[in-house]
Each structure stands twice: as structure tokens, then as C-alpha cells.
């Protein structure tokens, strides 16, 4: 019998602490598979965020570092510049990247820093108990928008990928989703492409992955995937936002 599919050796044996049905786990796996397939394990350094993925350093079988909240792109910049042979990625939530870390990500992108960013957009602060994020949808109920996000009061959600794609620095920016098998396969291709962009020395790459937070959305894992597909994708259209040949 041949193996059709098994857990990549780029993930450690440590069981993930994420809630049942949390798609952080799928995204971890896709990143790990991409690193494995590209044969870059020995020279890859990942930067973990603050957020539910704060323990990411326990799960990836490559060198990992932990950054202060939102500062992963700055730490990644150092790791890359000190030895450009390193392949450096950050893994960041939407609170981490688009609130407290908005400056770091914007400047890393506009510098064309040759790093790869995996941006997990679940439209909420998962770790801290479900507060409104810059990516929370209009009308979405969170613990800090109990009547639904009112754009008149709180502003509109930020489309990070489109915004960064207006800059001259980035080489590859795309948005993908993991709500079904087809989209998971597409997401994997995009993540691979982002790492290939870095390997080729083309500059900054970012993949925004729409992700479900069943716990803080107050849904079953099944309902959460459906909600993501029906509500997040219209607000955050999938596709390649920028690609420099």
C-alpha cells in the first residue's frame, strides 16, 4: 500500500491546543507541508505571534522565535537581513497584524523585505475572548460590539491584502480560504508560491488566509465554515492581489 496522505514531518508530535474545528490547525499544516516540499526545513525560521497561535513555536519542526505582539515582521526583518540565506516567515492573526502590528507590517511590506507573511484573518481577537478586530465585519457581534459592529462608531473593516497591494514593495500578495477541500488545496498552492517568491529573492510575500473561530463566533465548527464562506468572502474577495514577475 502506498501512502496517499499523512501528517508532514514538519509538524511536531505535540497535539495542537486549538479548539475543536479551529482552522488555525489546517493553516499550520499547509505551511508545514510547503516548507517540507520545498526542502527548506534546515534554513527556515518562523516567527510566532501573540494570539491563539502564540505556541506555534512548539508545532513547527524548524527554528522558531516568539515576537512581541504585532512585531513579528520586525523580528523577521532582522532574521533575514543578518543571513539572507535564511527563509523567514511570520504567522500572525488579524489583531496581531492589523491592530497593534499595523505599522510593522506596512513598513516591512513597503521596504519589500524578502520575508513571507502568513496572515490568519478570523475577524476577531480569538485568544483574549472574542473582542472586535480591525477585520470584524459590519454587524458582526463580538464581546466589544454586542449589538454588532457599527461602522459609524467603529469604522469599517480593513482589507489588508488590497491595502498592502497598493504599495510598490510587495512581490506577491493573495487571499485564500480553508472552508472546504478545494479551497484548502488552493491555499496550499498560494502558500507555496509565497515561499517560492522569497526563495527567488523577489521580495515581500503575504498570504491572507480566511479562518474560522468557532468558539468566539459562538458556532459549531460546521456553522463557522458556512459563515466564513457566506459572510467573509464577500467582504474579503479571494484571489491574487499583486504578483511581480
Amino acid at each position: 500500500m502506498a501512502v496517499v496522505y499523512e501528517k508532514t514531518k514538519l509538524l511536531t508530535d505535540k497535539p495542537l491546543h486549538y479548539c475543536p474545528g479551529c482552522t488555525h490547525g489546517i493553516i499550520h499544516r499547509l505551511v508545514a507541508e510547503a516548507i517540507d516540499e520545498l526542502g527548506i526545513q534546515e534554513r527556515t525560521i518562523g516567527i510566532a505571534p501573540v494570539g491563539c497561535a502564540v505556541f506555534a513555536y512548539d508545532y513547527f519542526n524548524c527554528d522558531m522565535m516568539e515576537a512581541a505582539h504585532g512585531r513579528a515582521p520586525a523580528v523577521a526583518t532582522g532574521c533575514k537581513r543578518v543571513n539572507p540565506k535564511n527563509i523567514v516567515f511570520t504567522y500572525q492573526g488579524d489583531g496581531d497584524l492589523a491592530s497593534i502590528g499595523a505599522a510593522e507590517i506596512t513598513h516591512a511590506a513597503t521596504r519589500g523585505e524578502n520575508i513571507t507573511v502568513i496572515f490568519v484573518n478570523n475577524a476577531i481577537y480569538g485568544m483574549t475572548g472574542g473582542q472586535m478586530a480591525p477585520t470584524t465585519l459590519p454587524g458582526q457581534v463580538t464581546t466589544t460590539s454586542p449589538y454588532g459592529r457599527d461602522p459609524k462608531l467603529c469604522g469599517y473593516p480593513i482589507r489588508v491584502s488590497e491595502m498592502l497591494a497598493t504599495l510598490d514593495g510587495p512581490a506577491y500578495i493573495s487571499r485564500v480560504s480553508v472552508h472546504d477541500v478545494k479551497h484548502i488545496l488552493d491555499a496550499k498552492k498560494s502558500i507555496r508560491k509565497a515561499f517560492e517568491t522569497q526563495i527567488a529573492g523577489k521580495g515581500f510575500s503575504l498570504v491572507e488566509v480566511l479562518s474560522a473561530c468557532p468558539t468566539n463566533w459562538g458556532m459549531t465548527p460546521q456553522e463557522a465554515l458556512k459563515w466564513l464562506e457566506q459572510n467573509m468572502i464577500p467582504q474579503y474577495p479571494l484571489g491574487v492581489k499583486k504578483e511581480v514577475e
Binding site: M1, A2, V3, V4, Y5, E6, K7, T8, L11, P15, L16, Y18, G21, C22, T23, H24, G25, I26, R29, D180, V181, I184, L185
Partner: peptide, 13 residues
């Protein structure tokens, strides 16, 4: 196996 967030399933054929 591809859908599983926790990499629980191995498939052989």
C-alpha cells in the same frame, strides 16, 4: 485527512 485541523488521519491505498 486534508480537512482535518489536527492532522489525525493517514490514508493509504
Amino acid at each position: 485527512a486534508r480537512m482535518c485541523p489536527d492532522a489525525v488521519i493517514k490514508v493509504e491505498k
